[in-house]
Simulated assay, not measured.
Amino acid sequence: MEGLKLSEAELMIYIHPSKSRNVFQAICRELSSLLFQYNETFDGVLLAYDATVKSKQAKILAGLHPYFGVRVNTRLLLFDPKPKSFVEGKIVKISPESIHVIVLGFSAAVITDVDIREEFKYRVRDGEGSFVSRSHKRHALKLGTMLRLQVQSFDEEVMHIAGSLLPENTGCVKWLEKKSEEALHTDRDHKRRKFA
Rank of each mutant, 00 (worst) to 15 (best):
M1C: 12
M1G: 03
L4S: 01
L4Q: 03
L6D: 00
S7M: 11
S7T: 14
E8G: 12
E8S: 15
A9K: 09
E10D: 14
L11Y: 03
M12H: 08
M12P: 09
Y14Q: 09
I15W: 05
I15F: 10
K19Q: 12
S20K: 12
R21H: 15
R21F: 15
R29L: 03
L31H: 00
S33G: 09
L35R: 02
F36G: 05
E40M: 10
E40F: 10
E40P: 06
T41L: 15
T41Y: 11
T41F: 09
F42N: 04
V45M: 03
L46H: 00
L47W: 00
T52Q: 12
T52G: 05
T52M: 06
S55I: 01
K56E: 11
Q57C: 08
I60D: 09
L64P: 04
L64D: 13
L64I: 14
P66D: 13
P66K: 08
Y67S: 07
G69T: 07
V70Q: 06
R71D: 08
N73Y: 12
N73V: 09
T74P: 04
L78W: 13
F79H: 02
D80F: 08
D80W: 06
K82E: 05
P83Q: 02
F86M: 03
F86R: 02
V87A: 02
K90I: 11
K90E: 05
I91W: 01
I91Q: 03
V92Q: 12
V92S: 15
S95E: 10
P96L: 04
E97W: 05
S98D: 13
H100L: 13
H100C: 08
H100V: 15
I102V: 14
I102R: 00
L104T: 00
A108K: 15
A109P: 07
T112I: 06
T112K: 03
I116C: 04
R117L: 07
E118C: 07
E119P: 07
F120D: 04
F120N: 01
K121H: 13
K121N: 13
V124C: 14
R125W: 10
R125F: 09
R125C: 12
S130T: 15
S130F: 08
S130Q: 09
F131E: 00
F131I: 01
V132F: 00
S133H: 00
S135G: 10
H136T: 14
K137C: 06
K137P: 13
R138C: 11
L141Y: 03
G144N: 15
M146G: 07
M146Y: 10
L149D: 01
Q150A: 02
Q150Y: 01
V151A: 03
V151N: 00
Q152S: 09
Q152E: 14
Q152G: 15
S153K: 10
F154H: 09
D155C: 12
E156A: 15
V158H: 09
M159I: 14
S164W: 02
S164N: 06
P167S: 11
E168K: 13
N169M: 12
T170K: 01
G171L: 01
G171W: 04
C172F: 02
V173D: 00
K174M: 11
S180V: 05
S180H: 10
A183K: 12
L184Y: 12
L184W: 11
D187V: 10
R188A: 08
K191S: 10
R192M: 15
R193W: 11
K194E: 07
